[in-house]
Design a protein around this nucleic acid. Structure first.
Lengths: 378, 378
DNA sequence: TATGGTGATGGTAGCGCTGCCATCAACAAA
DNA sequence: TTTGTTGATGGCAGCGCTACCATCACCATA
């Protein structure tokens, strides 16, 4: 009796024997039923059911030198932002045979490199990575990955393969222009920690102020300083924002710029903190102070007053990335290398200084339908 | 020239040849360096580096009838709650050779079954699943999975294998008792959509009110009704809460129960909406109305007034689950089948009706150190 | 009738790795 | 010396599946 190392589960050979066909026919019937005649397909399906056969993906991957794994690298798992992108990705995968494997780079290029190397061991069917600031090594790994690579949440003239996102510079500029239009003059930029996308927003903010002759390095420089300050304090190395940070950052910025009359926050969470700080100080929004955030998470609309923000299409970005990936895997042509999904400046009461917007809180640009952004049911 | 189906990447045999050793020795050197002498290990490492060898995980998994995949099933990706659990899981995995594969069940038992079947094709090294309300089929699959299975975020007398979580009933009861203690009498329960964990919280709430002789089915029944209402309205089938939902639900509950003087919200996001609604109506919190949430997300502390909540240890649950998994994989004994990580009732200004708590907003129970819960930097 | 094309099916030979055993040197114990 | 033990190393034979080709029946065309 020779010893077998199997775990006892039925194999494709067992199914083939039971159905009275060759193993390869079973393989075909499972992968693409149209390749097999109806009669055999039914016999095979029956055999699969009777035996409770479960295909072994490792064997499939080994034999075909190609797995069904789609590797996804995001800089953060906790933020709604990337959670939304991920949700779009999962929704795009749907019930296909593809599987997602997520790596959390924590905004660390070395970690990104390491995770990428791990992913490549799987011979992934495709890769989705966040942003464009990979290390040269990582970039080379992506180029040699021998599978479609989609970059997301930013734009670039020179994507590895394809990129889907929007211009953070333009978004930052658009919101700043809105703040200027409604009459704010001393507009600060509030940010905890800056990544390349934040920097794009900041540069848009600076450009808008410069064009309006309102640029003051004091307001702009503060961003970097405050970010450093944020990292030094009780806020640890995890690179995310909290409302408490927003409160502290606003207090600090006010100390430096007493005549500040509005802030453009790098993200909504900071904006929420700013609103709380204003509430606590009894400062009226938007009359005495304007508040704008970024991303338009769902609490922005529900806040009192509703908070202006830049709506970004995170779910769509993730979803479209997978659709593009699937297209490429199916061999369909895909010539658009750069896809700009755009953004919307959502003007709400928190920046309605002159009462010029329509019904307070609802004078949105284009009134796009609300995104499905989740909250907290356990 | 025989045709090879390889993708041209170096294999373990190439490394072995270059290092002048047997393939199996390379295999050992890579898996457990201590099994190989220093001299050979160095030669092998050099060969790996020179060739840029990347192990093929599919081949490894096939040969060893065991993959390095840890399957994780969560009901939602977007909620901070499960994002925190996931972060704990990723942190627990660290730099081990294990990989995570996440499935999003969307609170759907059929989908959970389907995802589980998918996962089992990988011959996973371990499984982490949320909660205890699997379908009988899913339960059977878990029991036959032939790998460690950890259930998380709930408790049960009869775990598949091991469970790590806390009692939602006790947590709901404890917060309700706090509301009673500080003097509220007409305490509502606010919830969008109820899952088994929400129901646990609700039952704790009911029990506390009954024990205090304050139980009124009007307040308690409202929860179910309102949840149904929530699902009917603009809120779609995604089963999460938004602040806007909190506002609408509170308005509806007030219509039914005009003398309502506090609400215990099923989650923090609803509580935030309730606060906004109170702000908008000019109702003073906590004097005229008490607000409590659940989970203690980071905006609760920063709100104005700070909002009371039940702190849950999501990161720890995920982290401990992986640690337990790794223990079992290493063959270490692990007799504790049920791990209760507990919870903390965080008493803040939003429920400080009589001003009995210390400094308003900081009289926490046990003052546990704040959890790292992320916000929104893109 | 001969020929060739088409579609369904099967056999063989790997895919790259590891489990199992064998081997062998070095040394301890009898 | 003989025997046994230990640790390092290697050979062989799969793991379960699919790529590649061969085969064969069937039909259309010359």
């Amino acid at each position: 009796m020779s010893k077998r190392r199997t775990d006892g589960k039925p194999t494709i050979a067992d199914v083939a024997q039971r159905a009275g066909v060759g193993a390869i026919t079973v393989s075909r019937a499972l992968r693409d039923p149209s390749l097999v005649s109806d009669a055999l397909r039914e016999k095979i399906d029956a055999a699969v059911r009777e035996l409770g056969y479960v295909p072994n993906l490792a064997a499939r991957a080994l034999a075909s030198t190609r797995s069904d794994v789609v590797g996804v690298l995001v800089p953060s798992l906790t933020q709604h932002i990337f959670a939304d992108v991920l949700r779009g990705i999962y929704d795009g995968i749907g019930k296909t045979r593809l599987h997602i494997q997520v790596g959390n780079t924590r905004y660390d290029l070395n970690e990104e490199e390491r995770l990428l190397a791990e992913l490549l061991r799987h011979k992934p069917a495709g890769l989705i990575v966040s942003g464009i600031d990979q290390s040269p090594t990582a970039r080379r790994m992506l180029e040699n990955a021998n599978c479609p690579v989609i970059q997301v949440m930013d734009l670039s003239d020179d994507p590895v393969n394809k990129i889907i996102g929007f211009s953070h510079h333009n978004a930052g500029k658009a919101m700043t222009q809105h703040l200027i239009e409604v009459g704010y003059r001393r507009i600060g930029f509030l940010s905890g920690w800056m990544n390349s996308r934040s920097k794009g927003r900041l540069s848009g903010y600076v450009e808008a102020l410069e064009e309006a002759g309102l640029y003051d390095p004091q307001l702009a420089n503060a961003a970097g300083d405050l970010g450093a300050l944020a990292l030094r304090g009780s806020w640890d190395k995890h690179q995310y924002s909290t409302p408490a940070m927003g409160r502290e950052l606003l207090a600090e910025l006010w100390r430096r710029v007493p005549d500040l009359d509005a802030v453009f926050c790098n993200n909504d969470v900071l904006a929420l903190g700013v609103l709380f700080e204003c509430n606590a100080r009894g400062i009226s929004v938007p009359q005495d102070f304007g508040i704008a955030g970024f991303n338009d998470e769902d609490f922005m609309e529900a806040a009192s007053p509703p908070l202006s923000s830049v709506r970004t299409h995170r779910w769509k970005v993730g979803h479209d990335a997978v659709i593009a990936l699937r297209r490429q895997l199916d061999g369909e042509p895909d010539d658009e290398k750069v896809i700009d999904v755009g953004f919307d400046v959502i003007k709400r009461a928190s920046t309605d200084r002159g009462g010029v917007l329509g019904r307070a809180g609802d004078a949105n640009v284009g009134t796009p339908k609300p995104m499905a952004v989740g909250g907290g049911t356990v």
